[in-house]
Simulated assay, not measured.
Amino acid sequence: MSEGDSVGESVHGKPSAAYRFITRLGQVYQSWLDKSTPYTAMRWVVTLGLSFVYMVRVYLLQGWYIVTYALGIYHLNLFIAFLSPKVDPSLLEDSDDGPSLPTKQNEEFRPFIRRLPEFKFWHAATKGILVAMVCTFFEAFNVPVFWPILVMYFIMLFCITMKRQIKHMIKYRYIPFTHGKRRYTGKEEAKTFAS
């Protein structure tokens, strides 16, 4: 490879100004993401606020229903991944490989590990809203469609998908929310020792 052939390098071997700018922009963005990590409630409030602004914009413009439908499908997929375990218990049913969810009352406590962690869920949902918002500025994305059909189809899709997810949760006995390790009280321990 000759001098200056690598990505972002100028002929003299130093990074180009555009490459340095993009790298610096990425570092600042990542820094803001890192600082926002502990503020879960505030992040979701901002995302809900952006969602509200988007909905008001779509309502006032009376268009971009396909973009809104695509955003709804995207958010539904993110939500399902958020509710799903990282390792699908149906795949581990016959094999004893790797950790699995507890299925009996006396089994060891194992925390629920999500396929899509909360922070990545928030980040992807927020980016989706921002992309949809940008799409509303371009008339090419304003495809004419009878929006009540899209709403009915989305509601049906949501109900079918959630029904399947809830059946999966019941079958494999997991709850996608972990509040911490099981606590034992003195009375239960005393009964155990008395037996």
Rank of each mutant, 00 (worst) to 15 (best):
L116R: 04
Q30E: 11
Y65N: 02
G49T: 08
I170E: 15
F158W: 06
K120V: 03
F193D: 11
S51C: 14
G72Q: 13
K14V: 02
E108M: 12
E93Q: 10
F119V: 11
A70N: 04
S195H: 04
R20E: 15
A70P: 01
T136D: 14
A190R: 12
L92I: 03
L71S: 01
A18D: 10
P15L: 10
T103K: 10
W64M: 00
I160E: 04
W64H: 06
T192V: 12
L116D: 06
I80L: 15
A81C: 07
L91G: 07
F138E: 07
F52K: 07
G13H: 04
E9N: 06
P148N: 05
T103Y: 01
L33H: 01
G186W: 13
I149F: 08
V58I: 12
P85V: 02
C135T: 07
A81F: 11
P102C: 05
A132L: 04
A194R: 03
F158I: 00
M55H: 10
I175N: 14
V145R: 01
L92N: 00
R57G: 00
V53E: 09
G72V: 04
Q105G: 01
L116E: 02
E188W: 02
S100M: 09
Y65M: 04
G13I: 05
R43D: 03
F141V: 00
T178Q: 08
H168I: 01
Q62A: 12
K167V: 08
V58N: 01
S90A: 15
L157I: 08
V131T: 06
F79G: 05
T40P: 05
K167L: 13
L61V: 00
G49R: 04
R57D: 02
W64F: 11
A70G: 07
I149L: 12
G128V: 03
T68I: 06
F109P: 06
T192G: 00
V131L: 11
I160S: 06
Y19M: 04
C159W: 10
D34C: 08
F82H: 10
H179I: 10
E118K: 13
H179D: 09
V53R: 03
S100P: 09
F79C: 04
K187H: 14
P144Q: 00
R20L: 15
V145S: 01
E139R: 12
F112A: 03
P148I: 10
R173C: 02
G8F: 11
S100K: 14
N106I: 11
F146H: 08
G72Y: 11
K181F: 14
G4T: 02
M156G: 08
D97F: 02
I170Q: 14
K163G: 15
I175K: 12
V145Q: 05
K191P: 05
Y65T: 03
P102H: 07
G8K: 13
W64T: 01
M156C: 10
L91R: 02
T47Q: 10
K14D: 15
T23I: 03
G63I: 00
D97V: 05
E188R: 08
R164D: 13
L50G: 03
V143R: 06
K35T: 05
R110P: 08
A41W: 11
P15K: 14
R164P: 03
V53D: 07
M152C: 12
G8L: 09
H179V: 04
L71V: 02
T40H: 12
T103D: 10
